[in-house]
């Protein structure tokens, strides 16, 4: 059984937000909200600067605090690819998951349920990449099975320096950043 993850090459990403726009149109995310976002992390002093540009979203953690904190079972680990999903019919909008997520990956949809990135599981099940991955003009995003040693994502993680976000939170995030 697959365990989907994402690998993003920050050395190629230009922070153009195409991934954010594509997510929005693909999933019809309501005005005023987005399921992914860009973080520009600048260090140093002018002109000796460094900038890491990161396309961020739900990390589909192996150890998801949102799922643990959900009182109704709406937040759950999907059996395809171990993707973390929200069942909007079960969600009561109590925001426990929002409080539990260290990545601020969720928001309350105007219709009252918690919403976030789904790794475009509806596309993945049709053999497509998530919308963000397939739109990225710099081709800096990769999606695949982390448990398959021959997948492109596994190979990239084996060959390139990388990190995850807030590893100390113990969530075991599955979105990796190549540096």
């Amino acid at each position: 059984m697959a365990r989907y993850g994402m690998v993003i090459d920050t050395t190629k990403c230009v922070g153009c937000m195409d991934c954010v726009v594509a997510c929005k149109t693909e999933n019809g995310t309501p005005e005023g909200f987005n399921r992914d976002w860009i973080n520009y992390v600048v260090s140093g002093e002018f002109p000796t600067l460094n900038m890491e540009i990161r396309s961020e979203r739900c990390n589909h953690c192996d150890n998801p605090p949102c799922v643990d904190s959900c009182p109704t079972g709406a937040s759950h680990v999907h059996d395809v690819g171990k993707v973390v999903l929200v069942d909007d019919k079960l969600c009561i909008g109590c925001k426990a998951c929002i409080a539990a997520c260290p990545y601020d990956a969720r928001y309350i949809h105007p219709e009252g349920y918690a919403d976030k990135c789904t790794f475009c599981i509806h596309r993945v099940e049709q053999g497509l990449d998530p919308a963000c991955v397939s739109v990225c003009p710099t081709r800096c995003m990769y999606f695949g099975d982390l448990d398959d040693p021959n997948s492109q994502v596994s190979k990239l993680l084996n060959s390139r320096k990388n990190h995850t976000l807030i590893p100390d939170a113990g969530t075991k995030p599955r979105v990796y950043y190549l540096t």
């Binding site: 190629k12 600067l49 900038m51 540009i53 003009p137 710099t138 081709r139 800096c140």
Partner: peptide
């Protein structure tokens, strides 16, 4: 579009990039 796509290819290929700008642009990074 094509310019940016090719720019990312050049970065990936390890081209030496020299950026002249009063501002530390995305390209500068």
């Amino acid at each position: 579009n094509s310019q940016v796509q090719e720019f990312a290819q050049a970065v990936e290929n390890g081209a030496t990039i020299i950026v002249v700008d009063p501002r530390f642009s995305i390209a500068a990074s």
